[in-house]
Computed example of a mutant assay.
Amino acid sequence: MALPLELLDNVFATLAPADLLVLARTSPAFFPIAQRHLYRSISLGPSTKNPLVVVLLARNPHLARCVRSFHVRMEPRSPIFSSFYTALAKALVNMTGLESLELSLTTCSSSVLRAAISDPTVSYPRLRHFSSSIPFDSTVVDFLSKAPILDSLSLDHIPDPKSPPLTPLVPPSILPALSQFTGPLHAALAIVPSRPLASVQLHDGDLTEEIVETLAASSQNLLNFSASTSSPPLPILRSISRSMSNLVYLRLMNTQNFLDVPDRTFFLQVAEVLYDILELSAFELCGMYWNSSKRKISETEERRIWTTPYEISFPSHADYTEFDDAHSLFAY
């Protein structure tokens, strides 16, 4: 009696590629199931022995449609020829069942996406994660428009500070389900507002109070936020406290060169700001991790009390105590 297809599929999903190859040769009934799992997840890196799998996917659409996860990560000195990128562009057209796509190609431009966006019949209805080193331009935006349920977007390209990037327009209909964004500031300003972002992590740019207000205009409450600024941190933190009051995790790096060592007053003021972000449970400032604990401030209310990395506790507004003079000698 033949086993149900669903049972065979579950069994094959647990097998190593070598075992799948053996089963594919064992029975005509096993071949399509084994083949589907062999091509389900493909990862190519600098040490990949056979990058010609990209050519195979470009020439065989039925195999490319089996791919759910496709990751390419090449180093700057990887000996990759232009024919590889041509085959990659065609393979992407065929991989319409993708759920996760990562393209880290240091010598590559957005041209690898153009074949997909030029074909109106191509879409990626299952794609939920997209990570790319390709500069954020109109071609990338057009590609994103073909992924209606994309949930996580990571743009690894860092713009040249001497040549400010031209930010493309991102229509409101694109990325309606996006909840996680990691990338450069100029892309965040185009993407975050009016979308249901829960997590925003910026790897470049200079955060200002005005930018905080713009990024806070997502259609959902931000829970996770990471950025850097050259401005004094306290005004930025106060702006974050006002605009992103539901944060659970906050990381703020500061590129300002402090002329004076931060003193007790500075840390007291930071603790004051953190006290007003009620849901915040993890905080990092300039590489310093702050601890916290919940304490009852009344019979019905419990608030989080923050402690500096130097284990000096700052209670609520009305309950600050004096500290030993030695504790005023803080340093990053």
Rank of each mutant, 00 (worst) to 15 (best):
P168S: 00
S154H: 07
P168I: 03
P164S: 04
S163P: 00
L185H: 12
H157A: 10
F181A: 00
V170E: 04
P172D: 14
A188H: 02
P176G: 07
D156V: 07
L185K: 09
P172Q: 04
I158P: 01
P168W: 06
S173Y: 15
H157K: 08
L178I: 07
D160V: 09
S179V: 06
S173W: 15
I174K: 07
F181Q: 02
D160I: 10
T182S: 05
P171T: 07
Q180P: 00
P165Y: 11
P159L: 09
P171D: 03
T167N: 07
A177T: 13
Q180E: 12
L166S: 13
L155A: 02
L169F: 07
A188F: 02
L155F: 08
L178P: 04
P184C: 01
P159G: 07
A188D: 02
P184H: 06
A188I: 00
L178Y: 02
A177R: 13
T167A: 14
L189W: 06
S163C: 05
L185F: 10
T167R: 05
K162S: 13
P161S: 04
F181R: 05
L178K: 01
P176L: 08
L155D: 06
H157G: 00
P164E: 10
D156I: 04
S163L: 09
P171W: 12
S173D: 15
L175C: 03
A190N: 12
P165Q: 10
S163E: 12
